[in-house]
Structure formats: structure tokens, C-alpha cells
Amino acid sequence: MDTAVQIVVSGLTLGAMYAVGTIGLSLVWGALRMLNMAHGVLIAIGGYFSYQAIDGWGLPMPVALLVAMLAGAAMGALIYFCAARFMFRNEAFENNIFIVTFGLAIALENGILKVFGGYPLAQPFSLDGGFRIGGVYVPWQNVLIVVVSVAVMVVMAQFLAKTRMGRAIRATAQNRDAALLMGVPIGAVFAQVLAIAGSLAALSGVLLSSITTLSPQVGFDPMLKAFIICVIAGLGNVIGALYAAFAMGLFEAAIQFFLGVRFALPLMLLIVIAALIWRPYGVFGKKQVTRL
């Protein structure tokens, strides 16, 4: 019984963080057909800005979270204005933007290394203490992570469903030409999507680093996991990604418990490979008809 509670608690915590990180990646793919390889470094940027805001500038935690999200949004917008803007009309965009964001990611990661050094730091965005469910100790930090993540997801869902900007993002993702014909300035939409994705990645970086440690590479594994989740859900399928994120969190917690940490990521990657071979368009994804 305690085992089950333990797995559910850490699984939900992981799932919540993955969900927040994955929504952004999925939105960006949906709207731009772009795999953002800088996602991992955006996660790290969030973590470091929160660290700097709290330990360096002495700001309170909620403000620090905001600072981190703003920094992520600014980086995301920068990726649009410095790179994607010149490229998205090109036929080779999908491959080229992958390479460009890969290059930016390595540059930024080493920039962080230069500024903060490579030693792991402790994320000050955290709560002490906890409570017990039966024999299982649940830290308040895990509760905080789940609460913040769920709140952000609810806000995002409302934003996409109800606002003018949210509708324009969905419309652009479904049919770029038709959105243009409605008068949607798709360049601005792309910049917004990248900024939103950047702020969500930064937020997930603050949460992630609060239960591990902060290092320049902190975002790489979570980025791969976010990709796995996206692929299983079908790239661009935001709702599917949410389910897949929680499923993945629970699955990872279970593997860690029964098989050990060593096999968690390799097994997840093997699953994604199997999933891709079995259903190339994602388990929940629909096959898209490519026009000739």
C-alpha cells in the first residue's frame, strides 16, 4: 500500500512538471512545425533566473517565478526574431530550425556555464517540511509543484479556448493559409507561441530544479522526456500530451522503484522507439495527409 502511495506521489509530481514542459513544446510544433532543441536550455534558464532572483537579488518566491518566466519568454521571442522569422517560409524549415536551435542551445548552455559555473546549485524556490499519508512522507514541495503546474495548465487551457490570441494560435496550427486569410499576422502568432513556450519551459525548469539540483545541463533529460511525451501523444496534440505526461510520470516512478534509476530513461526511450515504429504519427495522433 505504502509502495503504491509512494509511486503515485512521485509519479504525479513528475507528471505535473512534464506536462508543463511538454505543452510548450507541443504548441510550438503545432503552430510552426518546429522541434525546438533549445527547449532544454530554456528550462535551465528558468532555473537559474529563479536562483539569481531569490539568492542574488533577494526577491520573494512568487516574484522570482515571474522573473524566470519572463526570462524564458524573452528567450523564446528572441529565437523567433533572430532565427525562425527568416526561415519559416523555406521548405527545409523543419530540418534547418532543428539545427539552428541545436546550435543556440549549445551556445546558451555554455553561456550559463560561463556565468554560473558548472557546480550544481540548490534551487532556493522550495518549501520545507511535509506531511504523512500512512507511512509515506509527502514534502510540501511536491504539493507546491502539483498546485503550480495544475494552475498553469488550467490558465493555458482557458487562454487557448477563450481568448482571441488563443483562437488565432489554434487556427494557425490547423491551417496556416486559412489563418492568413482571416487576417491573422502569423509571424506575430509564431513569436507569441515561442514566448509562451519559453515561459512554460522556464517555469518547469524552476520546478524541476527544486527537487534535483541546478546545473547547465539540467534541461536535457527533461527535454528528451518532453519529446517522448509529444511523440507518444502525436506531435502537436496538446491534450494528448497532458495525458501522456502524467502516464509517463507514473511509469517513470514505477520503473525507478522496481528496476532502479539506471533503466528509467533508456526504457522510456525504447518505448518511444517502439511507439514510433508501431504508430509513426503518435499513439493518440492522427495520420496527416501530406499534399503532393
Binding site: 482571441r164 483562437r167 488565432a168 489554434r170 487556427a171 490547423q174 491551417n175 493559409d177 486559412a178 489563418a179 482571416m182 487576417g183 491573422v184
Partner: peptide, 18 residues
């Protein structure tokens, strides 16, 4: 060309984007 995954009303709202 309607936005397939959006409701009728959301499609019309997109028409009034400007």
C-alpha cells in the same frame, strides 16, 4: 478549409479576427 478542430462559433469568431 474551415478550422477542422474548432467549433462552428469559434470558426466564425476567427472570421471576425480583425
Amino acid at each position: 478549409l474551415p478550422f477542422q478542430d474548432m467549433s462552428v462559433i469559434d470558426n466564425l469568431m476567427m472570421g471576425a479576427y480583425l
